[in-house]
Design a protein around this nucleic acid. Structure first.
Lengths: 225, 225
DNA sequence: TGATAGATAATTGTCAGCAATGAGCGATTC
DNA sequence: GAATCGCTCATTGCTGACAATTATCTATCA
């Protein structure tokens, strides 16, 4: 049976997540269940599961009896997410120091290599996936399911924040700074790796335009004009 | 219509959460959908929602085609949760400094007063609810939905960890240390409040028995003997 | 002309029944 | 006697249909 039964919930979540991260789905847009069910050719029940998962990750807000809408994170929330990320990722790097293997270092280097390829070819989809994937890979290597799950949520939220507040065309969570971090880890210099990570996250945050307070309704009207 | 339509999903989540925190539901126990549906007199669909919510909060693990089981957090996970809590709660206290009102201080003092009453009367249920509720109230006052949601998860996880690894009869997340934190906040001394919070969390963690590695299967066999 | 109330359409929420998967148990065979 | 195969039963997963809620449109009235 080469026939695929149906699209899994996780696949739907990933597709929608990518659409949001790529700005194809703008904040405020309603994600109607019937519509999505038709697009993915699955039952509404599965869509509903996907939407609750997306809500947990902070990408959509579900208003009872109204529906699911793409979130519009505030500037304050953006700062909070980055603040927590700095702490959690420091935790991750610290934990990696206790259990890392040579195979793990290889995986990290391969990942950064892939990032370089995507960056060189300028494939936006891959760049987004891989830049988040790097941080997720670190969490995976840390061996803590809890930290992994937490990072998954934080990265999803960061993706949305980046989609909303990024003003440059280029992505700042690039392979160069990732590479430096990996090399410090490879040397066993975890304190320095953690410091580099913190600097990296600060860099990503400062490149965002987190000054102005954007009005969602204004954006909608402008889009419709 | 005084007739209540049916129990809400949130109520089910809270009841199950409390049962786990009070050790009435031990790690490894399966939470069967039909069973719960009969107990709460609701449809299985509602139970399913509650179980996914409990999974998100780290209280149960859902194994596909198998069912939902009460989690058994590892010692490492327990330490990770506390490490992240220290960072996030420091963030919360810091944020409170920017927006707190007199009414908020009153709410905090009232809450601690309730904690004292529950502690004096030795009502376990209230003690558990209120001690977690204090930290949740701080997050609420911080005004950040993101931090609030994060604290909600972390407190749920901490409740489970406490249920598993607590060896003393008494709860350590008590009103005295909470009171000190509130008074420092009232004085506008947020740096010191944050330090007290960190100390408080360290205290709670050290009172747990996080040395031994407990074997879940052993516990089950012992319980059945 | 603007606002309001009612009717209509669309969307979400819920439920009961059916299909599919996995666990437990007994029979069979080596 | 031990392991394996197949059957039975309990439990989960899914689908479709129905009920409830909300948004939209239209007609009426001040």
């Amino acid at each position: 049976m080469t026939e695929q039964a149906s699209v899994s919930t996780q696949q739907i979540v990933e597709k929608v997540w990518l659409s949001i991260a790529e700005r194809r789905l703008r904040p405020g847009v309603q994600l109607k269940e019937g519509q999505l069910a038709a697009i993915f050719d699955v039952s509404r029940a599965r869509i509903r599961q996907a939407l609750t998962a997306l809500e947990r990750e902070g990408l959509v807000t579900i208003i009872p009896n109204r529906g699911a809408f793409v979130c519009h994170p505030s500037v304050d929330e953006a700062r909070d997410v980055f603040a927590v990320r700095r702490s959690v990722e420091a935790c991750v790097v610290e934990r990696i120091g206790t259990s890392i293997t040579k195979a793990d270092v290889t995986r990290l280097r391969n990942h950064v290599a892939q990032e370089r390829i995507a960056s060189a070819k300028d494939i936006t989809t891959d760049i987004i996936k891989l830049s988040g994937g790097f941080h997720l890979l670190l969490a995976e290597i840390s061996g803590s399911d809890f930290l992994f799950g937490m990072m998954r949520d934080l990265i999803s939220r960061t993706s949305l924040i980046t989609a909303v507040y990024r003003n440059t065309a280029r992505f700042n969570c690039g392979p160069d700074e990732h590479d430096e971090i990996v090399e410090e880890i490879a040397k066993g210099n975890f304190k320095r790796a953690a410091a580099l990570m913190e600097h990296h996250l600060e860099h990503v945050e400062t490149e965002l335009d987190l000054r102005e307070v954007r009005d969602i309704s204004h954006d909608l009207r402008a889009a419709l004009a």
